[in-house]
Design a protein around this nucleic acid. Sequence first.
DNA 1: GTCTATATGATGATAGAC
DNA 2: GTCTATCATCATATAGAC
Lengths: 193, 193
Amino acid sequence: MTEPAPPPDTAQRMRHAALHLFARHGYAAVSMRQIAAEVGVQVGALYNHIPDKQALLFQLLSEHMTELLQAVAAEDLSHAPLAALEGFTRFHIRHHAARPEAVFISYMELRNLDAANFALLEEQRQAYETRLRMILEAGQADGSMRMADARVATRAIIAMLTGITTWFRDSGGLSLGEVEEIYWEMVRRLVAG
Amino acid sequence: MTEPAPPPDTAQRMRHAALHLFARHGYAAVSMRQIAAEVGVQVGALYNHIPDKQALLFQLLSEHMTELLQAVAAEDLSHAPLAALEGFTRFHIRHHAARPEAVFISYMELRNLDAANFALLEEQRQAYETRLRMILEAGQADGSMRMADARVATRAIIAMLTGITTWFRDSGGLSLGEVEEIYWEMVRRLVAG
DNA sequence: GTCTATATGATGATAGAC
DNA sequence: GTCTATCATCATATAGAC
């Protein structure tokens, strides 16, 4: 009746190890041998699960963006613009604070993707940005928000919020809930009508 | 009467080439041979000007931070807090927009410094942050600004402003002066008393 | 200061045994 | 699916001639 012990699942352990090591040392500075050592196999074994190192990086970044888009799509859009903006702000903070390593390499390692892979991710990134921009433009339209340039405000807000991952630690002086409150107040003022 | 042609100045050309290549491909992904090829010398010649690759990276980042601190120290501090904040905002945008590559590697390549070099730069970074935080706290004290947490607001503003370098291009739709206006308006609202 | 040549070791990826 | 062994290449850094 007991479940059989799950297999070691080398593929997943490899992705996990690569995420940690890429975040700490950078994609180019991490060798396949280091990843294999972290997983507990020899280097040749990794190539049963991934065609090459580049594909491993792309898989990590692609999974991160897909997960982000799926999660934001699940947010309720039926609110008035200001409430939608609050929802987006709190969602973005929670989602990014929960995966600082994936956020970090998604920004840092784009250079190491080939052109085709880069284009795929850039498209997803823009789709996410558009989600926020639509909220801001709806707020402009119904008069609940006021700003000089919705595109610029979109980028400013995302940069401000994502920057949290560079300093926020669970062990720090502020809880994530407190950070959420502080940032929502700043975002609210930024677009005040 | 004419000036003699200046010497090729390999040391400076090396730093210039390294800045471009590190920004484009990342420190770990760039070889000393690539740098030498960009300068137009053989790889051995570089080691007459730098003890090793790590020192080359540190020199670039250290020069960038020292230049930033010197430039901000030259700003006039005699203004009221709101005027000082406007001065800081415009200074930060102009200074960073003028050197996007140095900004980029200063953020990306900190991981590749050894502990001692990292500590030196972190100290300088905090000194810069403190400059802005003092302005915000002065504004809180005299009632011209209002915010939940000056430390958090400091980081939020710097992240928001530095993010400009990731998308601003001279050839784009907005002039730097227009960007300055838009961001100063957003910063002003963010701390509105 | 720059060159050529080299020491020494690590890298990504593959082949074939088990 | 993992192992050992290996290929071919590239890396940083140095030595000594000019």
